[in-house]
Amino acid sequence: MRLLFVHAHPDDESIATGVAIGAYAAAGHDVHVLTCTLGEQGEVIPPELRHLDADHDDALGEYRLGELRAALGQLGATGHVLGAGLLNPSRYRDSGMAGSPSARRPDAFVRADLGEAITWARKVIDEVAPDIVVTYDNQGGYAHPDHIQAHRVACAAVATMASPPTMYAALTRRSWVAQDRAWVAAHVDAATSRGVTIPGADDPLTASMVPDTLVPRVVQDAEGARRQAAAMRAHATQIVVEDGWFTLSNLVAARLSGREGYAPLDPRTGLVRPGPAGEGLIP
């Protein structure tokens, strides 16, 4: 089987879908990742690399491309960058968070001509010929503009196909959120872990944290989880991986649970739809 995961920035593939990518690659399936931008607007965690960010040398995209290649090597997947050519490593630039000045740049992914972006996506889809395509839900996981755009482009590209592949959206069961927050509270000591924040049980949920009944498919795999952690370590500008948990630049601790949830996605409407409960993405 061939699987294609469509993501907005380097590291999204590892954080959101790394268990599935690693598990299916380890099982011998042909796994591909399409990344839409190089994450040029990302915040940089290591002090010695902060000169790379958009406010200084503006060289983070090329560096993160190297991290992406290393992460995909750990996962066992083949990488593609949307609109990449011989002279340009990517066609579109990271837009940054909603409302940021970087989103007004003419090359920002949120300002992409949809017809052009869909054509580039179809080129990769036609080349890979996937049986399954995975991306975000229509809210982009946590409403990041580039995640929403990646969802829009992926769905529209698949919807143009006469015999479209099966699509899934990556989602999280709310019961898992409660379990993972309780685990972090029990296992992570904020006082001795560089001042990290422990999420509270009543902290707000993101758009991708939905009722369990809306997430019928589960991927839980020890080798996939091992590969995910190794891939996340490759994204050192963005992620710090600890024993069973990790943080981003916001220093909020999150559990590495080794499980991921998915729901069938209708490419014509962009909405998740009901599906049979079960293990894995491959029928």
Rank of each mutant, 00 (worst) to 15 (best):
Y136L: 02
V241I: 05
E260H: 02
M161F: 09
G73L: 01
H144G: 08
T206S: 15
Q220S: 14
R105P: 00
G224W: 07
G200Y: 00
L60C: 11
E43K: 15
M209F: 12
R233V: 11
G83C: 02
E127G: 00
D126S: 02
A8H: 07
R122L: 11
H56I: 07
V31C: 11
S14K: 13
H32S: 10
A230E: 12
R50C: 09
P165M: 03
A71H: 03
V215I: 04
T17S: 15
A84F: 01
S14T: 13
P145E: 07
L86K: 14
V133W: 05
L75H: 06
T237A: 10
S90F: 07
M97R: 14
D58A: 14
G18H: 11
D202M: 02
H9S: 12
L214V: 13
T37D: 08
D11F: 09
R91W: 03
S208L: 13
D202R: 04
L82G: 08
H9L: 10
R104S: 15
V134I: 06
R105M: 12
G200T: 00
D30L: 08
R268K: 15
V218H: 08
E13M: 10
M209P: 06
G39L: 04
R255K: 14
H9Q: 13
Y168L: 13
V219H: 12
A70I: 00
Q179P: 00
A103W: 05
H51C: 10
P283A: 07
L114W: 05
V272I: 15
V219Q: 11
C155N: 09
R259T: 15
G140A: 04
D30T: 12
W120E: 15
A236V: 12
G270I: 04
T37I: 09
A159F: 05
A70M: 03
T237L: 06
P165C: 07
A77C: 02
T172P: 00
V252I: 14
G280A: 02
V252K: 12
G244E: 02
D94E: 10
R122G: 04
D266N: 13
K123Y: 04
L72R: 13
H29N: 06
G224N: 07
G76L: 02
D94M: 08
V110E: 08
D126T: 06
L49M: 14
A150P: 00
A156Y: 04
E223A: 11
G280T: 02
H32N: 10
E279K: 09
P165H: 08
H29L: 03
L72F: 05
R273I: 14
D189M: 01
S193N: 05
R259H: 14
T192L: 01
V240Q: 13
E62I: 10
T197D: 02
R69L: 09
A156P: 00
G258M: 05
G115H: 07
A201E: 06
A54D: 11
L205E: 14
V184L: 04
V33C: 12
D53W: 01
D30V: 10
A84T: 02
